[in-house]
């Protein structure tokens, strides 16, 4: 009996390893191909491991295009994702506390409104928002991308609310008896306890902004303002037949921040997805 279990276990692991390999093959291919000499990439497309290793692609790709190199694009992506994430986290925690712990008039109504906006296709508000920012003369700056992040993300509010609901209400009451106002309870009781939810929000928010394509596409049309996603798109358009290696190298670099954060914080992420159904 025991032998049999062990045997089926081995089969299970073999199947899973093969399956993982197959699913990750495209990513692995991109990674290894970025170290192949440019002319070999398609000639040896069927091979995963390069015959000759080179970092030439990273050097040539980093130079970028239009006189702007990839350090600028990286910086822009970090700027947008970083400040945008701060905005999202700060505002979402405040709003989540308001909805979860304060009984004010109209709470249910506004909460329903917020949930409904989660289902709103961005296309409906995209054009008027663009017109609005165009009139403010904010196009070709990071303002249209960053300012709205300070108005909280419904998904994150929901995630943090779920977390706050798990904190015993007795803690609030005890603090109240000790003379804490609602603001005091927020800063001294709730805020220190929601750290895990804040970490999850930070990670997801960072990802989404790092990957955001439509926003930068609409508002950033000068090469020195490009984020990674737009830079790769333009690089892809302009590289009709030339620098594949550079393109793959820069694509590989662009997904590294996401992967690094994922491996450090994966438990938070899995938890976050499982409790709210957020998409990654």
């Amino acid at each position: 009996m025991k032998e049999k279990i062990k045997f089926s276990n081995i089969i299970y692991h073999i199947i899973m390893i093969l399956f993982c390999f197959l699913m990750l093959y495209p990513v692995l291919w991109m990674f290894f191909s970025s170290f192949k000499p440019n002319e070999d990439i398609f000639a040896t497309a069927h091979k995963l491991i390069p015959d000759k290793w080179t970092i030439e692609n990273y050097i040539s790709g980093w130079k970028g295009f239009g006189g702007v190199s990839f350090d600028v694009f990286f910086k822009n992506s970090f700027l947008y994702s970083g400040i945008g994430t701060i905005g999202t986290v700060v505002s979402s925690v405040l709003v989540a506390y308001g909805f979860a712990r304060v009984k004010f008039k109209g709470r249910d109504f506004w909460f329903t409104c917020m949930i409904l906006t989660m289902m709103l296709p961005v296309q409906v508000v995209m054009i008027p928002q663009f017109i609005m920012f165009h009139k403010l003369d904010w196009v070709n700056s990071f303002k249209p991308l960053i300012v709205p992040t300070f108005t909280a993300g419904p998904f994150f509010v929901f995630l943090i609310m779920q977390f706050i609901r798990g904190i015993p209400i007795e803690l609030d009451e005890a603090a109240k008896i000790d003379g804490c106002s609602k603001y005091g309870i927020f800063f001294r009781v709730i805020l220190p306890l929601v750290t895990p939810a804040i970490v999850t929000t930070t990670i997801f928010s960072f990802y989404w902004k790092w990957d955001d394509f439509l926003g930068p596409l609409l508002y950033l049309s000068k090469p020195r303002l490009y984020t990674m996603s737009i830079a790769l798109k333009v690089f892809n358009d302009s590289t009709t037949t030339t620098n594949w290696g550079g393109l793959l190298a820069m694509s590989t670099l662009s997904i590294i921040p996401a992967l690094v954060i994922f491996f450090i914080f994966q438990d938070y992420l899995v938890e976050g997805i499982a409790t709210t159904g957020i998409k990654g």
Binding site: F19, C20, M23, L24, P26, V27, W29, M30, Y207, W210, D211, F213, M228, S229, I230, L232, K233, N236, L247, L248, S251, T252, S254, I255, A258, L259, F262, Q266, L269, V270, K279, G280
Partner: peptide
């Protein structure tokens, strides 16, 4: 490992690849 495609799949980098 199996979550990784979902993590990066929506990005421009993967579309390019």
């Amino acid at each position: 490992a199996l979550y990784i495609p979902s993590l990066i799949g929506g990005s421009v980098a993967v579309a390019v690849m």
